[in-house]
Nucleic acid binder design. Structure first.
Length: 593
DNA sequence: TCTATATCACCC
DNA sequence: AAACGGGTGATATAGA
């Protein structure tokens, strides 16, 4: 155990019960705490909690606060206007780290952790029923209140028991992860500003747009029932039109877009159907939680993936949707949002941690892909993205392929080049960056010999017989990339930047119009400092974009779709009726993509 | 009508 | 056995 953990005089295990109201904000219902040295217990109901200006025990330097999934507890601290505790350990993060790569038989929740350590968790059995009761109403009878408080205390006690089982394994890094839980709670509370008017219009027209799209195109095919694509009808259509469709091992026609594209190239009459399917796939269900304050909030699901990344629900988090949906992000009046992403984060991580000097030079040259191409003598010194776009693309894809451990066949496929040329590209990578490969091989060897692999700050993956070797290869880049993101999130929030969302290698931030430029600089410094801390002094660059109200978020990959969606929502503005133009908005829309 | 499975699309 | 890492979620089909 680390010195700082040991010297904590008080250890308070805490748990809150709360309701999630209005698009994702927690509303505390009660709090239970137990001090582990003395056994002193505190149990506080809503009315009293709301009147408290600070936590019921001092949260200073000599106190360690414990919780299970602490972003919830810290969210309640924020809701109550309390300062965060100085020292926090989240036993969820620690349990995830302890069992990462294994599958705890009862999951990674509090009951699962209790089972793992052979602790009695009878109290946990009623969890679903209690959550249901808590969410079902606003006022509780005396008996219900008693049961909720009892349940809350049982979780705090469980948290304390868990601490006693886990404390020997805790380290300085546990406190770092605790810091991240505070930052995550702050970010979850901030949320993402949404143009709610456009959002509501979109939601209300959603089903109608889909129906119109299908109706307009499927007239000529008859392969849909409602808005559902029917394989049987499609195979019949193919037979009638003498088209032999590629099939899967299961005997079903290959339904993916690549196949549709290829087949449409052979049979041009198929194009509208391909366009329809591609469009519908970008119109999946749409249920972002947006509060009355026009902000999208959801759980970030921190430490959820094996590499330690956040993994928020893609349906509840606007950055999990198709990129065009991001145009619903709009800073409120008088404010701006900034989107800051690390440039070639994983390449930079690999260059720094492997110590490969050529790779570091390629990164520092400003364009690693061109740098690689020049080093490989595939482009002349002085080549740029503009002068050698095709070469650059090849070396870019090859660079990413290396990070994902792609085979030469896979690379050939994705670049549309012969396998022998793909092999040559991969060999060039080995030749140009031998230090990287030595480091990467060593990391995998170590992991296989010792059955674990770690990031620089101790996020560990347990290696089993079934661990994918490509996962191991990729782990140092992705896992340390996640460390970068967590540390930058901590630094950013500590320095007062309003972070709305982390997006793996990027952040969305927000500030008043006159403060946004400073906020961007502060966040970029936080990101560079984080990279230096994780990468032994190597500072990664970042790139920033700013969108000032009333401008909305813009991603070039999504602008076409965004514009066409708007064309459907507001046809009068986009599609003038007239004798020479009888095409429906839907056909125009399909033609535009 | 519900669940399980396969496959795909989207994100980084 | 496949040959692209980490994910969430939607859709379509088959089977209970």
């Amino acid at each position: 155990m680390s010195r700082r953990l040991r010297k904590s005089k008080y250890k308070w295990a805490t748990d809150f019960e709360f309701k999630i109201v209005d698009g994702g904000l927690p509303e505390p219902l009660c709090m239970a705490c137990i001090e582990l040295n003395t056994g002193k217990k505190l149990l506080i109901w809503r009315d009293e909690l709301l009147s408290m200006k600070e936590p019921p025990f001092p949260c200073g330097d000599d106190t360690l606060v414990l919780a299970y999934y602490a972003s919830a507890e810290m969210g309640c601290f924020l809701a109550l206007g309390w300062d965060f505790p100085v020292h926090l350990v989240d036993l969820y993060a620690e349990f995830r780290n302890l069992t990462n790569g294994l599958t705890p038989p009862s999951g990674s929740g509090l009951p699962g952790a209790m089972v793992h350590f052979g602790l009695d968790c009878e109290g946990a059995i009623a969890k679903d029923a209690m959550r249901k009761l808590i969410l079902s109403k606003d006022e509780f009878s005396a008996d219900e209140q008693r049961r909720i408080l009892e349940y809350c205390m049982s979780d705090a006690v469980a948290c304390g028991q868990l601490y006693n089982k886990m404390c020997d394994g805790l380290a300085e890094h546990s406190l770092l992860r605790g810091e991240y839980m505070k930052a995550a709670a702050t970010v979850e509370r901030n949320g993402i500003p949404i143009d709610v008017e456009s959002y509501r219009t979109l939601v209300s027209r959603w089903a109608g747009i889909k129906t119109d799209l299908v109706g307009d195109i499927d007239r000529n095919f008859g392969v849909y029932e409602g808005t559902t694509f029917k394989v049987k009808r499609f195979t019949d259509w193919c037979r009638r039109n003498h088209i032999v469709w590629p099939i899967l091992a299961s005997g079903y026609p290959r339904p993916d877009d690549d196949t549709f594209r290829a087949m449409a190239a052979l049979h041009p009459s198929l194009w509208p159907l391909r366009e329809l399917r591609a469009t519908l796939s970008q119109f999946r269900t749409f249920k972002l939680p947006v509060g009355g304050d026009d902000r999208n909030r959801c759980l970030l699901s921190v430490f959820s993936s094996v590499t330690g990344r956040n993994q928020p629900s893609s349906s509840k988090f606007i950055f999990g949707q198709s990129v065009w949906v991001r145009s619903l992000i709009q800073a409120p009046p008088g404010c701006a949002v900034g989107y800051i992403d690390w440039e070639q984060q994983e390449f930079g991580v690999a260059a720094a941690l492997s110590g490969d000097v050529a790779m570091q030079r390629a990164y520092l040259s400003g364009d690693p892909y061109i740098g690689f191409a020049i080093l490989a003598s595939a482009a002349p010194v002085g080549a740029t993205k503009q002068s050698h776009p095709v070469i650059r693309e090849r070396f870019k894809v090859a660079t990413l392929a290396v990070q994902y451990c792609m085979t030469e066949q896979g690379l050939a496929e994705s670049l549309g080049i012969p396998t022998i040329e793909a092999r040559e590209l991969l060999e060039l990578h080995h030749r140009c960056f031998p230090g990287f490969w030595k480091w990467s091989d060593s990391a995998v060897d170590y992991a296989l010999l010792n059955n674990h692999i770690n990031t620089v700050f101790g996020w560990e993956l347990h290696v089993t017989a079934t661990t994918n070797l490509r996962t191991l290869r990729n782990y140092p880049m992705q896992g340390n990339g996640a460390e970068l993101m967590r540390l930058a999130c901590i630094y950013g929030t500590q320095r007062g930047v309003k972070i709305c969302a982390p997006v793996h290698d990027a952040f969305l931030i927000e500030a008043p119009l006159d403060k946004i430029d400073d906020a961007i600089l502060t966040m970029q410094a936080a990101m560079a400092d984080a990279s230096a801390a994780v990468l032994g002094g190597f500072r990664l660059r970042s790139e920033a974009k700013v969108f000032r109200h009333p401008a909305r978020f813009l991603d070039p990959r999504g602008t076409l779709m965004w514009n066409t969606v708007n064309g459907l929502l507001h046809p009068s503005q986009y599609c003038k009726e007239g004798p020479g133009n009888t095409a429906s908005p839907v056909s125009l829309f399909i033609k535009s993509i």
